[in-house]
Simulated assay, not measured.
Amino acid sequence: MSNPREGLDPLAGLLTTLDLTDTGARTSEDIFTGPSQWMPGGRVFGGQVYAQSIMAAIRTVEEERSIHSTHGYFLRPGDANQPITFSVDRIHDGRSFSTRRTQAYQNGVPILSMIASFQDHDPGVEHQVAAPEGVTPPEELPSAAEVLGPIDHPVAQFWATSRAFEIRHVEQPIYFEPDPNRVPRQAIWMRTIGPLPDDPNLHRAALAYASDYSILEPVLRAHGVRWTHPGLKMASLDHAMWWHRFARVDDWLLYVQESPTASGGRGLSTGRIFTRDGVLVASIAQEGMVRIPELHD
């Protein structure tokens, strides 16, 4: 379980992961390839393949059109020791919108299927919900490195030192202790550990990457379950995201999350991402498999 890339800059690793290679193949689809990031369990991080699928779709759309929504299904677990192939189908190019379908493959079978929509920058109606008030600022909260750094375990060390994003929980983290309040909601602050290039599409894809980090935690909080609960099994099933306004991901962003329901061994979580000034940047929804041994015997 040792990390073969230990000591490498996590931010440089993120940029390398999102810099896909165009194979030059042109049949009915556009083909790209990208590397997988090492993960302690050997499975590809869902946020990684999702962000890469977005970057592949972006490479086939006119520069004037920005991604505004995605809907994807995680079909199979990916192997973090193998690269990924991305096939993009140019489904539609209209007067204002473009639609793309990206399929991510390993060993000839799809591991993710995603639809993405792009739009010209058009004027129109504007409103948003307000950001929550009274949230503890990130400077007053411990970082994941401070919380997990002293723990001598490869997963804890990976989360503490090898992620490209800094994560700070507003509520008590549930890495090792469950939420005693059993409330199905939480908020985190997040930003990359260093500055990113100015490319807006890179920031949009990186935001999708980070949106998968903690989105299912409210499900665990609701049932008094910690990440280290014996036998806990979790996996993302689908992920939807809407970009409302642009924001840099190397500035602090507030990610407010809640789980409205769980049933059938699945939990649904929704999230809203705000800038520090209260601008609503994106909305997210994800359903995941959540299996707790004592409830599945």
Rank of each mutant, 00 (worst) to 15 (best):
Tyr255Gly: 02
Glu126Thr: 13
Pro260Lys: 05
Gly124Pro: 14
His223Met: 02
Thr60Val: 12
Trp159Ala: 11
Ser211Lys: 04
Ala56Glu: 01
Arg76Cys: 00
Tyr50Ala: 13
Val225His: 09
Ser236Glu: 05
Asn181Glu: 15
Val125Tyr: 04
Ile188Trp: 01
Val147Leu: 10
Phe176Thr: 12
Thr270Lys: 15
Thr23His: 10
Ser259Leu: 03
Pro200Gly: 01
Thr161Phe: 11
Arg163Ala: 03
Asp212Glu: 11
Arg221Gly: 13
Ile284Ala: 02
Asn81Leu: 09
Thr102Gly: 07
Ser263Trp: 06
Ala222Glu: 08
Leu18Ser: 10
Gly267Thr: 00
Tyr213His: 02
Gly267Tyr: 05
Glu126Met: 12
Ser28Lys: 04
Arg90Phe: 03
Thr23Glu: 12
Asp89Leu: 12
Ser2Ile: 10
Glu140Met: 01
Phe274Asn: 15
Leu232Cys: 03
Tyr213Trp: 10
Gln186Ala: 13
Val135Gly: 02
Gln172Pro: 10
Ala12Met: 03
His223Pro: 07
Ser143Phe: 06
Ser283Gly: 06
Leu216Ala: 10
Glu140Arg: 03
Asp212Ser: 08
Val61Arg: 01
Ile174Arg: 04
Val44Ile: 11
Trp252Ile: 11
Leu280Cys: 01
His127Asn: 08
Gly231Arg: 04
Gly267Asp: 01
Ser211Ala: 13
Thr102Cys: 15
